[in-house]
Structures are given as C-alpha cells and as structure tokens.
Nucleic acid binder design. Structure first.
Lengths: 216, 216
DNA sequence: TTGGAGTAATCAATCGATTGATTAAATTTG
DNA sequence: CAAATTTAATCAATCGATTGATTACTCCAA
C-alpha cells in the first residue's frame, strides 16, 4: 500500500530524528533506532539504503518545510522592515517548540567537519535562511529605518545563537531559568514568549535609529 | 621521570581534546586518538582508566583554568558595572581563539543528555560562569546604570550563544562572513575584534539607561 | 662506580561485544 | 502467481578494553 508505506517511512524518520538528536549520529545505532521504531533492523537499509541515507532523509524531508516557511515573509510590501523582522522572530521562535529535535540535530551536525556531502547540504540550508534575514536587514538600512552601522551577520548569529544556546542545552537552561524546559507546556508558555519578547526588545534597541525609538 | 610523565599525559589530553571536538565522543575511537597522539592504545587506559575517564580528564584539567579566570573580575570596586561587562566580554572573546576546541567540546556534550555524571560536571562549570555574569548585571541594575527591565538570563544566552554559533559551525560562519575562520590568524585579527565590538555595541544599547547613552 | 632488584612505562596481540550491512527465506499484498 | 515487504540469521569490520611480555628507569647495596 503506497499510503501506508509513506506513513511507515515517516514514522521511522520521526523516531530516527529524535534518537539521533539525543545520541548523535555515532551514538545512535541502527539497532536502537529500529528497536524504538518497532521495525526490523534491515528495514532501515531497505528504505534508506544505509544509516547515512536515513540521516540524510531526515534533512531532505525538512527542507521542503524550510523552503515554504522562507517564502511566507516573501516580498510583502505593506509592512515596515522592522515589522518584517518582528514577524520573522515570531516565526522563528515558534520553532523553538515545534522543531526542537531537528534544530538540535542540525547544529550538532554543523559543528562536525566530517561527512562532507551531508555537511554541505546542511550548510546550504542554513545559508538560505541567513541570506533571507540579511536581505531584510539590508532593506531596513536602505530605507533609513535601521542604523547604517549595524553588523548584519552578527545580528543573525545572535538570533540563532541565543535560541540554540537555550534549547540545545536544556539541562543548563532549566537550572538557569528555574523551570524545567523539558516539559512541553513550560516551553510553550514560558520560554517561547520570553525569548520572543527579549529578542524583539534587544534588536529594536540595536537596529532602530534613535529618532524612531519610543522614549521608553 | 615525573616531569615527562605529566608532559606526555598533557600531550595526550591535548590531542584527545582536539579529536573529540572534531569527531564527537562516539565518533572518536581510542585507536584514532592514540594514533594521532603517537602512543600505544593501551596507554590511554593505563593513564586514564577508560575512554570516558580520558574524556573526563580533559574537563578536569580545564576546570582549574576556569576557576582562576572567574576570579579575575572579582570584586573590583574601582570601575563601573558597564566597564565590568566590557572587561568580561574582552575576557570571553579572547577564548574564541585560545580555547576553540574545548568550547566546542563543551557545548557538544551539553547538548546530549546521557553520560549523566559528566553532564552534571559540565553544567556546574557553566553555572558558575553564568552566576558570575548575572551578579554583574544585577549590580548594574541596582546602582541605576542598567535599565530595570532587562532580562539577565537572556543576555547571558546571547553572549554565549552568539559566540558559540560563530565558532561551533566554522564552515557555515566562513561562508557567511566571507573569510575562512579555520585560519588562526583570521580568527584573531578579524572575527575576534568584530565579535567583541559587536557584543559591546549590542549590549550597550540594550542594557544602558537612555540618559546614559551617547546620542550616537 | 657498578650491578641487580624493583617499579613504572610501553608494546603487540587478542578478547568479547557491538557496529552497519547483507543474505535468503518467509510473509504479505495486489 | 508475482512482486513487494518483512523477518531471522549472519557477515566482516571495528569498537573499547585487557593481557602478558618486554623495555626503561630508579634506587640502594657492595
């Protein structure tokens, strides 16, 4: 059955995504993954060719989602540059909750140099995101909304880095913040809005020209 | 000879630190490490008991260095809160260059939940750093230098997160910035001062009360 | 100074366990 | 039936760890 085959493959990808994010590529054995997914070990190779093929399939699947999210902001001419940044931040912090595993997996793999083909793939995915934000920032500079001397690339590093730091080391973050962010409801109701508010305030004070700022 | 034994152990730790940071804990085999260190494989177990013991020894060695760095800022009463933050940023970005491998290793391990004892160790190390910065920020709030509504914990996440994002994925960062940060001299002369300047400007605009800011 | 006993360091060889992958047979599906 | 799927069994390779033998060194008595 075509439909169920896709569902089963999707189920395996879901499980693999989680296990990989928890144990890393080398730490997660094919036996563990197939065991937790409730399928025979040989199925992984039957469906995805190899362990690395399975790993790659996880990213392939998410790429489509990335692309469409990237287009949402698109070329909306009706709102200001700062409002676009705000919208992007809202879109991005939403993923704090929904794509927890994958984001961790992504930056885990980005920090390793080997597995060249895969690393290039992931780098390309990230580059698309980066250039999108860069475009928004440059637009704001050109129309005078933003200060001319902002460091766009560093701003991007701050957006991604701040979030990654918080969600990629949940144990540390939980201790620092005083609530357990492993619990989904806590993530959704406390961390997510807090990060969103903070990043907006932080970037507003850095990006906007003085005369545009509310006196606070 | 006592002296040479320490040197050799130190050499192994140096190599292991690098290899672990490049390949991860599971990806780095004891054979690879001993091979690159130019010692017999059995020496690793002879010196450190096990692979995990070797891994732990890397962190044990760095803990001393951390402790003394933490005390440097100490209770200096002669400078303002903002100047203390500036000094901390300078101290911190210095490590962008000098402790590249270790920092990557640290946050690699922080993002995995298993290896409980070690994770707790690392979390504690980080917590000490965090609480130190938190104290500086709180001090600035209390004496009126900083705005009262700043989110201290998020600021910390920004400082660490921004740097980690840049140095933990050198491949991506190099493409975004347009110069290869794998080269040490580039790291030192371009990325480090850039990060330092950026973080100072970013945090100054967020932390300081309006009336204290230069009109820019 | 020399010789040998005792300790520390190093080595090649190998252990059982686990890894990713493959096979051929069995089962299900259309 | 024929094709697609699923299974258990097994493959060679590699993993971390350990062994016993060997070398290098220290120290003290003669």
């Amino acid at each position: 059955m075509e439909k169920e085959k896709i569902d089963k493959k999707d189920h395996i990808l879901d499980v693999a995504e989680r296990v990989f994010s928890e144990l890393g590529f080398d730490g997660a054995s094919t036996r563990t993954i197939s065991g937790e997914a409730g399928v025979n070990m040989a199925m992984l190779n039957y469906y995805f060719g190899s362990k690395e093929g399975l790993f790659l399939a996880i990213f392939k699947r998410k790429m489509i989602w990335f692309q469409e999210q990237l287009g949402i902001l698109g070329n909306d001419e009706t709102i200001s540059s700062w409002e676009k940044i705000e919208k992007y931040l809202e879109l991005y912090t939403k993923r704090v909750v929904s794509n927890n595993c994958f984001q961790k997996l992504l930056h885990q793999e980005l920090s390793m140099q080997r597995r060249g083909e895969l690393s290039d793939h992931i780098t390309d995915i990230m580059l698309k995101n980066v250039s999108e934000v860069k475009k928004l920032l440059q637009e704001g500079i050109n129309n005078g909304e933003f200060r001319k001397d902002i460091d766009s690339e560093m701003v991007i590093a701050t957006i991604y880095g701040t979030k990654n730091f918080l969600v990629n080391s949940p144990q540390l973050t939980s201790k620092v913040l005083g609530y357990d962010i492993h619990v989904d409801s806590v993530l959704e109701e406390h961390l997510k809005p807090r990060v969103e508010t903070y990043l907006k305030t932080l970037l507003k004070s850095y990006l906007l020209n003085e005369h545009d700022k509310p006196s606070k």
